[in-house]
């Protein structure tokens, strides 16, 4: 699926929903879809980079939950602590990302295994740390930021817009971006062309972990609380968004603008399922089917070559 098709699908889904329930495309509804999509999109930037290089980051849910839980506990409702806590959480996530990246790039551990293991460790640490129970609420400053608007547009969307611009530029017109594509297309050739393949391969996992940590903090502000399964939907959602956005699951092609479309498709799709009174089970089935279809299409395309 091309990037353009993905955007056409977004519009198509909104129209379909509107025909069924007129309120489906009200301005407030559209805003809600965009905000919900922004969480998938923020996680999706790192996931896009990982998938571009032929990898994937499965530790995303644990990092999201971990950062949300840590922020809520450490701030303990005190806005003054928010900034230093966020810095700390992001740094810890970056460490997890670096370890993932080093495992994949230098120790040649398959990304699925490396990030799955890291996810387990992070989740386990969180359980040890919280002893299984959390009772906390976000600092008021965070809640205010997340629900607040400037010029009628939610802060979250401004933030996402900045990330979209950065992500698009990073991939399209920086040497870093072009090298990532080269690594995804042919790692050996990239190495011989003088790309520092190993160092480059660490970066996507760091971006992914930091993105997940930031998402976790914002999501906690949005939900008004942290809970131990809050990150779970975002692994599937971010990988499916990348696939729907036209990237090859096998690496070497795709871009962030596509992933943004993918995030919107998935969000509107889940809203549509709710309108049709289909529950969370159907949402999962849809995500899974979307991901498998994308993988099949990519595989067929490779075999045709």
């Amino acid at each position: 699926m091309s990037v353009l098709t993905a955007y056409v699908v977004v519009v198509g889904l909104v129209v379909a929903g509107t025909l069924y329930t007129p309120g489906f495309s009200g301005i407030g509804q559209l805003r809600t879809y965009a905000v919900q999509a922004s969480f998938i999109g923020l996680v999706g930037l790192g996931q896009t980079l990982c998938i571009l290089t032929g990898g994937i980051d499965l530790s995303v849910p644990a990092v999201i939950t971990g950062s949300a839980v840590m922020t809520s506990i450490l701030c303990h409702g005190d806005s003054a602590r928010l900034a230093p806590v966020i810095v700390l959480v992001v740094c810890l996530a970056a460490v997890a990302g670096v370890v993932n990246g080093i495992g994949v790039a230098y120790a040649n551990v398959p990304p699925i295994i490396m990030t799955l293991g890291m996810g387990g460790v992070v989740q386990g640490l969180m359980l040890v740390y919280t002893k299984g129970g959390i009772s906390s609420f976000p600092p008021p400053a965070l809640a205010r930021f997340v629900v607040g608007r400037t010029l009628g547009v939610p802060h979250l969307l401004w933030f996402w817009a900045a990330i979209i611009a950065t992500g698009a530029v990073l991939l399209a017109v920086t040497p870093f971006g072009r090298r990532l594509y080269a690594i995804g297309a042919n790692r050996e050739a990239a190495l011989i062309a003088g790309v520092d393949v190993r160092r480059m391969l660490v970066a996507p996992y760091v971006v992914s972990a930091v993105g997940a940590a930031v998402t976790g903090v914002l999501l906690m502000g949005y939900n008004g609380q942290a809970y131990l399964t809050m990150g779970d939907p975002y692994l599937f959602a971010s990988a499916a968004a990348v696939a729907v956005g036209g990237a090859s699951i096998l690496g070497g092609s795709g871009n962030y603008v596509g992933t943004v479309a993918g995030a919107l498709v998935l969000t509107v799709l889940s809203a549509l399922l709710i309108v049709f009174s289909l529950g969370a089970g159907w949402l999962l089935i849809t995500y899974g089917a979307v991901l498998l279809t994308a993988a099949l299409l990519a595989s067929v395309r490779v075999q045709r070559r």
Binding site: P175, R178, R179, Y181, A182, A185, N186, E188, A189, A190, I192, A193, G194, V195, G252, S253
Partner: peptide, 21 residues
């Protein structure tokens, strides 16, 4: 094919890959 080129990428990307800086 296996060591030289990134076959799925464009001619432009391949030619410039070693001189991006």
């Amino acid at each position: 094919a296996s060591q030289g080129l990134c076959l799925t990428l464009s001619v432009r990307d391949n030619i410039a890959l070693s001189s991006l800086r």
